[in-house]
Write a protein that binds this DNA or RNA. Sequence first.
DNA 1: TATCTCGCATACGCTCCGTATGTCAAGTGG
DNA 2: CCACTTGACATACGGAGCGTATGCGAGATA
Lengths: 195, 195
Amino acid sequence: MSIRLTKMAENREKLIAAARKAFAQQGYAAASMDQLTAEAGLTRGALYHNFGDKRGLLAAVVEQIDSEMAEYAKSVGAKAVDAWQALLAEGAAYIEKALDPEVRRIVLLDGPAVLGDPSQWPSQNRCLQSTRATLEQLMADGIVQAVDPEAAAMLLNGAALNAALWLASSENPQAMLPKTLEAFNLLASGFLANG
Amino acid sequence: MSIRLTKMAENREKLIAAARKAFAQQGYAAASMDQLTAEAGLTRGALYHNFGDKRGLLAAVVEQIDSEMAEYAKSVGAKAVDAWQALLAEGAAYIEKALDPEVRRIVLLDGPAVLGDPSQWPSQNRCLQSTRATLEQLMADGIVQAVDPEAAAMLLNGAALNAALWLASSENPQAMLPKTLEAFNLLASGFLANG
DNA sequence: TATCTCGCATACGCTCCGTATGTCAAGTGG
DNA sequence: CCACTTGACATACGGAGCGTATGCGAGATA
């Protein structure tokens, strides 16, 4: 690969890393582009050339974090004994991951406000489609009742994400986590064919 | 009441109304305070005197809209035949109300980003506590299984709010609404004692 | 080696927020 | 009825930040 392209890729990575830190600590609106780029050893020129505008930078950061979450959730789900347990495990993984302040601030709070509805994002959409596919399989096997798989997948994901947000702002997140997961599993069992 | 206080109350109402429109149409960040106050026949001076800062104005707007939603949901729930149906009806009411673009943009997108986690807001918290109380009653009656009522209430509300967000950005919200409500009811039935 | 390309830095203008100060109507006491 | 005070709001100022237009120099091309 040419020197120019590799340096450009490195700079992109530097900017995303600096933005990730700045957005997490100060929030999207309060984060200064001048400060952010200086932290990465660059200027706003590099930023606008690579990402178009501030929004574009946030989109890149969200994409990165969200992909990491989806990948982790998938790996957790793969270890489950069956498809249903995988579904629950993925939900639990999402809840746990979202306890990370970085994820909360960037993906759950600023992301939707700046980039719009999360279910439209490429990464979240992939996750949603994955959940939907699993649900469809479970329906075909008669394990889950027949409902709109898209809506069901969205409800599960939405409940998990929201739970993380609520959990994070509770007084004692670690203590509430098992109770929340228990309630989440019970809620999800509503989809099962035989109560 | 003195003339001064009534005029002040009127001006507050004017500003909130103008802000509600501006925030809904342009989003919180893009809405200009100068433009907003001019629309109300005032200046930024009035705004800072009444609400402290831009955030304070958003908080007042959110409080108003959120209270309207809670009140509506409660009135819908009151018409239900039993407590369980009331719970479902309130969830459905939330989902339907959140299809309003004004509610979506201000309460679901900008609100959390600027004001922080919704479950900490006075209005949402009241709604959450109301749901929790209903759940506790249902548990005492043996209709709902024993789980942490706070977590369960949060999961139901969260799923409903998220569903609205997703529904609104779908291609045909009106067509998906019944399927979504069906899935929501099924999901909620996971809490029931006898599947 | 000469020229071109383009990723990035620099400089400028514009908008917007928050505060400090001014102003005038509404209240108050004599 | 009038001087005085209060306070709700308008006006003016300073600072910060974003987006764009322009300049530059290292790497690519022939």
